[in-house]
Simulated assay, not measured.
Amino acid sequence: MSKNGELKYGPPGADAIHICVDMQRMFAEGTDWKMPWLPRVLPNVVEITAAHPDRTVFTRFIPVKKPGDGVAMWRRYYERWRSMTIDELGQDMIDLVPDLARFVPPARIFNKHVYSPWTGSDLDAQLRNAGVDTVIVTGGETDVCVLATVLGAVDWGFRVILVTDAVCSSADETHDSMMNIYLNRFGQQVECVTTDMLLCDWPGGARA
């Protein structure tokens, strides 16, 4: 959490947005990419989304259709993870988990084909045009797509709030290491707070 246990720059304003990273069936169910403790953080993600469904964007990681697809090293990546291509998984597995899918709309979906939602997209322009100045991040994985989302938001100059009990990974050791980095190496640019702390200052219209 933040060193003083609170949001150091004050409550998120009306121009904050919640980016929930890749909370999809293929990471929640019995696949090679399953995150075993996704169910542990899901209630917190639901609570934040329920408070601000119209201020939530769900990113979805979209794999290639079949092994052999993809550009450069991504082609090799999907040779290794051929079980996670759409032809092997089935199209439905890229969907959000049901507990979150029910918020769409008014929540929105933003598809991406790489770890970062900022690469090869107009996400920054979309958010700037909507007056967004603060990005609140939840989802998975802490050390992969969440990391890419956080660093991209930092690079674009957004205020970044990471919700510590609403992110997860499939690897405990690297999750813990990454949380230490967020807290210490990025202490000036990433505010780390719990769900309860966030919602005390960004309550919204509903609590799940």
Rank of each mutant, 00 (worst) to 15 (best):
I109P: 03
K65F: 00
T85N: 02
I109K: 01
A130H: 04
P36W: 02
Q126K: 14
L42Q: 03
R25T: 07
S83K: 08
D122W: 04
M35Y: 15
L38G: 12
G70D: 11
W74N: 12
L96A: 05
P39E: 06
H113T: 15
V71I: 15
M26R: 11
T49M: 01
D133E: 12
A101G: 04
A51S: 10
T31Y: 11
G120K: 07
E79F: 14
D54C: 08
M84V: 08
T134A: 07
M84A: 10
W33A: 09
R75I: 07
F110L: 03
A72F: 14
V71Q: 13
V57S: 01
G90K: 10
M26D: 09
L127I: 11
S116P: 06
L89H: 10
E141P: 11
R55T: 05
L89I: 12
R40W: 00
L123R: 02
A72R: 14
K65I: 00
Q24A: 03
K66M: 00
G70H: 05
L123H: 04
P36Q: 01
G140D: 01
D32G: 15
T85S: 06
P39C: 00
L42V: 02
E141V: 12
G140N: 01
V137K: 00
R55P: 14
L96E: 05
W118R: 00
F58Y: 09
V41Q: 02
F110M: 06
G131N: 03
Y78V: 10
T138E: 07
I109F: 04
M23N: 01
V64W: 07
P98K: 09
S83Q: 11
D99R: 04
D122Y: 08
D133K: 09
K34C: 15
P36G: 02
P53D: 05
L42A: 10
T49K: 00
G68Y: 12
W118T: 07
P63H: 05
K112M: 11
P106R: 08
S121W: 01
L127T: 12
Q24S: 08
I48Y: 10
M84H: 13
A51H: 05
V45I: 13
R80P: 04
I109T: 00
P43L: 00
I136M: 12
V135W: 06
S121I: 04
V71F: 15
R82H: 14
P105N: 02
T119M: 04
T134R: 06
A51Y: 05
L42P: 12
Q91N: 13
T31M: 11
A107M: 09
Q126Y: 10
P63I: 00
I109L: 07
R102A: 12
D133I: 07
D122S: 14
P117Q: 05
I62V: 15
Q91M: 10
T31F: 13
K65H: 11
Y115M: 08
L100G: 05
V132Y: 09
H52Y: 04
W33D: 02
M84D: 09
R55F: 06
A107V: 01
M26S: 13
F103V: 05
D69F: 03
K112R: 13
D99M: 11
N44S: 10
A72H: 14
V97W: 03
T56K: 08
F61W: 09
L96K: 03
R76L: 14
A28F: 02
A101L: 05
N111D: 15
R82S: 15
G131E: 01
